[in-house]
């Protein structure tokens, strides 16, 4: 890759740039700033599409009463039961149980507060679902990156 061919396809970095290796005119390698590269952007946004779809699917199941709000907040943070169990110092099966509505309702405040702290939210937020909004019906905070427009 030549220095003047270094791609500048902005999409992911919030105005930041990465460096990549390119050849200058004399054929020596130099570090060149790049705002991003379209193929990498496409692949990254595809990964986010998968996460969005997963969050939407979980949210629908929570609304249908199949899963507890905890499951939604986990999906929002790209967490599965194993990962959250690691953070909470619990067994995987315990987290899986708390992803069901009835056991979740019976959780004691201390456990709820622990989950809320891990997921960077408050106990009230943890027990609540986002308002229905927009066509996708997913309102996340912090918002997950997505394609513009």
């Amino acid at each position: 890759m030549q220095e003047n061919e270094v791609p500048q396809d902005e999409a992911l970095f919030d105005g930041m740039s990465e460096v990549c290796y390119a050849l200058d005119q004399s054929g020596r390698y130099v570090l060149a700033k790049s705002a991003g590269w379209e193929p990498a952007n496409i692949a990254n946004l595809q990964a986010w599409d998968v996460i969005h779809a997963e969050v939407a699917a979980v949210l629908a199941r929570v609304r249908a009463g199949e899963l507890s709000p905890l499951a939604f907040h986990m999906a929002r943070h790209q967490m599965d039961a194993k990962l959250l169990a690691g953070y909470a110092g619990l067994f995987c099966w315990q987290v899986r149980r708390h992803m069901k509505p009835a056991p979740f309702r019976n959780l004691n405040p201390a456990r709820l507060a622990r989950y809320a702290a891990i997921l960077k939210t408050t106990t009230e937020e943890l027990c609540r679902l986002p308002e229905r909004s927009g066509a996708a019906g997913v309102d996340t905070e912090p918002p997950l990156p997505s394609r513009e427009g």
């Binding site: 460096v19 790049s34 193929p39 990498a40 692949a43």
Partner: peptide, 11 residues
């Protein structure tokens, strides 16, 4: 493609 090109590989 992500593993190959995402930030950190230098291209």
């Amino acid at each position: 493609i992500r593993m190959q090109e995402e930030i950190g590989t230098g291209g």
